[in-house]
Design a protein around this nucleic acid. Structure first.
Lengths: 224, 224
DNA sequence: CCCTGCAACTGTACGGTGTAAAGCTGGCGA
DNA sequence: TCGCCAGCTTTACACCGTACAGTTGCAGGG
């Protein structure tokens, strides 16, 4: 027993890429991407920072890894369903995943070294559209339109001071504080007449825009 | 003459917020946002880094400043024109401005302290839609849809390895290199049959998507 | 059983970052 | 002439990514 304990202490569980990435993902989720430093990651794993460089060439490879974990969480477009339902579910899934991993929003499309989950995801989306009869040009249109909107919406939403202590309207009012009241009449009107109304939730805008886009793609598909 | 020169040397042109921000913008444009450090900015201005803290509370205020410079470059929606032309021109202007200042893409919507140009811009957009008869709910829909798409498209486009040494298709092929050829058939088909074709330019996708969105908004406006 | 080799990890160092705190300095008003 | 103080510098601290060399403990071969 003693021997085993001693051996255990000396011969601790070795690092694996998986364990490193899981921990890195946890750190980024908890404290944002700036909380993920090699030193902190090492400390969390009971290891010096430089030990990580035995398993990963540099920090960017770690980032590649956790981004692919995030891609892995995205629901693939269901194969049986029609393209519109498939695209809608996928879009909402991406949106949900990005809400869980806000730090990832600027990074998902920035990978020069995409991982397998990333590629599998893209492959499935293209496949879903193709098998619904989209020609390649329309696939390209649809994909850039959908992904642009999904990521852009997440980007603008993420950046809102979304701490639940105040409403969007209250935040907006605070932002306008330093300026003369009558300088931005339309902005003021929008905030007071709409954004500050109790029922308003900016998050609800996502599906509205998504359906506008899907309508447009449907029309383009039908007339093709 | 000698005296004047001596005085000049001792009593150099003092820093102004404007001069600091112009230089900061130049640095970010030239070398990306990571090239903009307080030390480097100080050096560029012939001053120690800490001198900047006499004029700006911290680096974030400098970032606020240059982001508002970027907002100032965006063409406001022309007042006389109809909402659709106005929104189209504004969208393309934002797109162009973001192409000139790629570092800004993640930051435009992230400001907790918006500057005057930022607010003026938002005010004008809302004003343009309102005066065209959009009710507030539709203004909110339109704005989140348009800005989501504009920023998201810029985000995905910016992150492409857009050095002019290779085409998009060649890049894609290089990305797929480490993987078995038949693993991602749809992706491969898309690349070979479409993205690698000579005429293809991803940048062209922007206006297609924009018009789909404008069509959708038009329909919503007409039926309202 | 010992020895060597090597995978896995540590220690140290370098040049960078933002910024707090205190010190200097030259021109201006009294 | 003197003192003030705006504007800047100096120094320091705690962090960052990572190059490079050193250590350690186990596996396998002789």
């Amino acid at each position: 027993m003693t021997t085993r304990t001693t051996t255990r202490v000396h011969h601790r569980e070795p690092l694996t890429p998986e364990r490193v990435l899981q921990t890195a993902l946890k750190l980024a989720d908890q404290g944002g991407i700036e909380a993920l430093s090699m030193r902190r990651l090492g400390r969390e794993l009971g290891v010096e920072a430089m030990a990580l460089y035995y398993h990963f060439a540099n920090k960017d490879r770690v980032l590649d890894g956790i981004v692919d974990l995030v891609f892995g969480e995205i629901e693939l477009p269901p194969a049986g369903a029609g393209w519109r339902i498939a695209m809608r579910r996928r879009a909402i899934s991406v949106h949900d995943v990005l809400a869980r991993h806000r730090w990832a929003i600027g990074m998902m499309e920035a990978r020069t070294n995409p991982g397998p989950a990333n590629l599998r995801h893209h492959d499935a989306v293209i496949g879903s559209l193709r098998s619904a009869g989209f020609d390649m040009a329309l696939v390209a249109h649809a994909y850039s339109l959908l992904d642009g909107y999904i990521y852009g919406f997440a980007l603008t939403k993420m950046n809102m001071p979304y701490d639940f202590s105040e409403t969007i309207g209250e935040t907006a009012v605070r932002m306008l504080q330093p300026f003369p009241v009558d300088e931005y009449p339309n902005l003021v009107a929008f905030i007071s007449e709409h954004a500050m109304k109790p029922g308003y939730d900016f998050g609800d805008e996502f599906e509205y825009g998504l359906d506008v886009i899907l309508d447009g793609l449907q029309r383009a598909h039908d007339t093709a």
